[in-house]
Design a protein around this nucleic acid. Structure first.
Length: 469
RNA sequence: GGCCCGUUCGUCUAGUGGUUAGGACUCAUGGUUUUCAUCCAUGCAACAGGGGUUCGAUCCCCCUACGGGCUGCCA
C-alpha cells in the first residue's frame, strides 16, 4: 500500500460519537501506517439537520483525540456545482435519465406491492424516452428526478474486512441521483467526492456495506477509479442495540469529562473490532499505528464495555509520569491546585495516581490535600468513632503536638506508642486517624498522608474532627 | 417481503478437521498490603439449533433461528 488517501466523512448533525471516533481512528491508523493522507470531509448537505456548531464539536473532538487530519477540511456543500456537472454528465453519456414519476405515484405503487406481497420495483417507464418526448414533459412543467440506468448483470467488490460481496444489479433499482429540486443524493455525491479527493481506500461503518454496489455503479457510469472498500462493524450499547443517543454516554466529549485521556480512548476503541494478534492490550498511538491490520478486523459488531475501558485507563495512568498526569489534569481542570507549590502537587499526584482509574478520580481524591478543614460524612463518623477511638484520637493529637522531627520514623513511632498505650492493633489506631485526617476511609498510606500534609494541617484537622464528633 | 452481513464464556476476543476450546475484562474466593487500590493465585463461565461431508467437526457445505444493515426525492 503506497501513500493511500483515506477520509473521515461525518455529517454535522450531532456531536462526534464513539462509533464515529472509532471509524476516524481506523482511517487515521491506516493513513499514518502507510504514509498516506487522512482527510476530513464534512457532509453538510442535509440543510435541515446540519449545524455549524456541530462541525466545531466534531473537529474539536478529533483534535483532542489527536486524530489530526491532513490538508483543509472539505465541505461537501462547496461541491454543489461539481455534483451538478456530474449529474449532467451522466445524463449526457446515457447512464442516467430523467424520471417523471411523481412521489405520490411511487408511494401508491409501493403500497400496492406491499399489499400484494410482491417485490416493489421502480417502473422504468421513462428510461428510454426520446428527447422529443422528454422535452414535451418538461415544457408541460412536469417535475422530474434523475435516475441512474442500472445495467444488467451483477456488481462485485472485495471488501478488506468482509471479503467478496456480490449483488445482482436487478436488486438495486434505478435509484435516484438527483432529486426533483435538482439536489444530488448521498450515494451519488459520496462517489463523486471520494473520486475528486482521490480517495484510494474508503473505510467506514458497515451500515454502508449495502450502499457500496450503488456507489460502484456511479463510479463506473462516470468512468472514475473505484477505491478499495473496508467496512467496519458497528459498536453496540450494552443492550446490544446500535449505539445511539439513548445510551448512557456516546459523546466523545463526555469521556473527556469523565477523565479518560485520548490515549485511553484510542486504545480501547482500537480493541473494539480489532485484535492485535498478541496478548498485548495496552497500546500508545505509535504502537497502534505499527500494529494495526485490516486482517485482524472483526466482522461482527462489538459491545462497548465501560468496565474494560476503566481497566485500560487504570493501566495507562499507572504507567504515566507525574508530569504527563499533571498536563492531563490541567487540560481537564486548569484551576486544579491553584496557589499551591508545584513540589507539593507533585507529591499529591504520586500518592494517589496508583489508586485512580481516571483523571477525574485523581482530581477528586486530591481534594483532601487542598484544604485545612474537612467536611465529614456523618455516617462515616458514626461508624468510625466510639469512646475508645475518640480517646485514641485525643492521645494521638496531643502526642503529635510534641513531635519535633517531622519524619516518617517519628510518625510511625507515635502510632506504636498509641497502640501500646491503648493495647490495640495498629488498625484500630489507623482507621480513626485516617478518617479524622483525610475524611475518607481509604486512600494513600496514612504515614505518607500525614507526612505530606504537615504538622499544622494535621493538627487543625484532628482538632476539628474532635470538635464535630 | 427482497438483498447483503453477522453468530466462540456476561463482555472484548484467540483458535484448529482430532485441543482439557486459550487469553483479557467483569464477578467470586484466597494470599500480599496499616486502609483502599495495586499485585499474585484459584475458581465460575462459551463454540445458536438441525442436517450433511468426514474415521472424526467449533472449524467445510446446506437449512433454520436470532441479530444488524440496505431496500427514501435521509446521510
Amino acid at each position: 500500500m503506497k501513500n493511500p488517501s483515506v477520509r473521515f466523512a461525518p455529517s454535522p448533525t450531532g456531536y462526534l460519537h464513539i462509533g464515529g471516533a472509532r471509524t476516524a481512528l481506523f482511517n487515521w491508523l491506516f493513513a499514518r501506517q502507510n504514509n498516506g493522507k487522512f482527510l476530513l470531509r464534512i457532509e453538510d448537505t442535509d440543510l435541515e439537520r446540519s449545524k455549524e456548531e456541530y462541525v466545531d464539536q466534531i473537529t474539536d473532538a478529533l483534535k483532542w483525540l489527536g486524530l489530526n487530519w491532513d490538508e483543509n477540511i472539505i465541505l461537501q456543500s462547496n461541491n454543489n456545482d461539481r455534483h451538478q456537472e456530474m449529474v449532467d454528465k451522466m445524463l449526457e453519456n446515457g447512464t442516467a435519465y430523467r424520471c417523471f414519476l411523481q412521489k405520490d405515484e411511487l408511494d401508491k405503487l409501493r403500497k400496492e406491492s406491499d399489499k400484494k406481497k410482491v417485490i416493489f420495483r421502480v417502473p422504468q417507464t421513462y428510461r428510454n424516452l426520446s428527447s422529443k418526448e422528454e422535452k414535451k414533459l418538461i415544457d408541460e412543467g412536469k417535475s422530474f428526478t434523475v435516475r441512474i440506468k442500472v445495467p444488467d448483470g451483477e456488481t462485485e467488490f472485495n471488501d478488506m474486512v468482509y471479503g467478496s460481496i456480490k449483488v445482482q444489479n436487478k436488486d438495486l433499482d434505478d435509484f435516484i441521483i438527483a432529486r426533483s429540486d435538482g439536489s444530488p443524493t448521498y450515494n451519488f455525491v459520496v462517489a463523486v467526492d471520494d473520486a475528486d479527493m482521490n480517495i484510494t481506500h474508503v473505510i467506514r461503518g458497515d451500515d454502508h456495506l449495502a450502499n457500496t454496489p450503488k456507489q460502484i455503479l456511479v463510479y463506473k457510469a462516470l468512468g472514475l477509479n473505484i477505491p478499495i472498500f473496508a467496512h467496519l462493524p458497528m459498536i453496540l450499547g450494552s443492550d446490544k442495540k446500535r449505539l445511539s443517543k439513548r445510551h448512557a454516554a456516546t459523546n466523545v466529549q463526555e469521556y473527556k469529562e469523565k477523565g479518560f485521556t485520548p490515549r485511553v480512548i484510542l486504545n480501547y476503541l482500537s480493541l473494539l473490532g480489532w485484535n492485535p494478534d498478541s496478548e498485548k492490550e495496552i497500546f500508545d498511538q505509535n504502537e497502534l499505528i505499527n500494529s494495526f491490520e485490516f486482517k485482524q478486523v472483526q466482522k461482527k459488531s462489538a459491545v462497548f464495555d465501560e468496565k474494560k475501558l476503566l481497566w485500560i485507563s487504570q493501566q495507562h495512568l499507572s504507567e504515566m509520569s507525574v508530569r504527563d498526569l499533571m498536563n492531563e489534569i490541567y487540560a481537564l481542570n486548569p484551576e486544579w491546585g491553584d496557589g499551591l507549590e508545584w513540589d507539593y502537587l507533585k507529591e499529591v499526584i504520586k500518592l494517589i495516581k496508583d489508586r485512580s482509574k481516571t483523571i477525574t478520580e485523581i482530581t477528586s481524591m486530591s481534594e483532601i490535600f487542598f484544604k485545612d478543614k474537612l467536611e465529614y460524612d456523618i455516617d462515616l463518623l458514626n461508624k468510625t468513632f466510639n469512646d475508645k477511638s475518640i480517646a485514641i484520637i485525643k492521645d494521638f493529637q496531643s502526642t503529635l503536638t510534641s513531635i519535633e522531627d517531622w519524619s516518617r520514623e517519628e510518625i510511625e513511632k507515635i502510632f506504636e506508642d498509641i497502640m501500646e498505650q491503648h493495647e490495640v492493633a495498629i488498625g484500630q489506631v489507623m482507621k480513626p486517624v485516617r478518617v479524622a485526617i483525610s475524611g475518607i476511609p481509604f486512600g494513600p498510606g496514612i504515614f505518607d498522608l500525614i507526612l505530606l500534609l504537615g504538622k499544622e494541617i494535621c493538627q487543625i484537622r484532628l482538632r476539628h474532627a474532635l470538635s464535630v464528633i
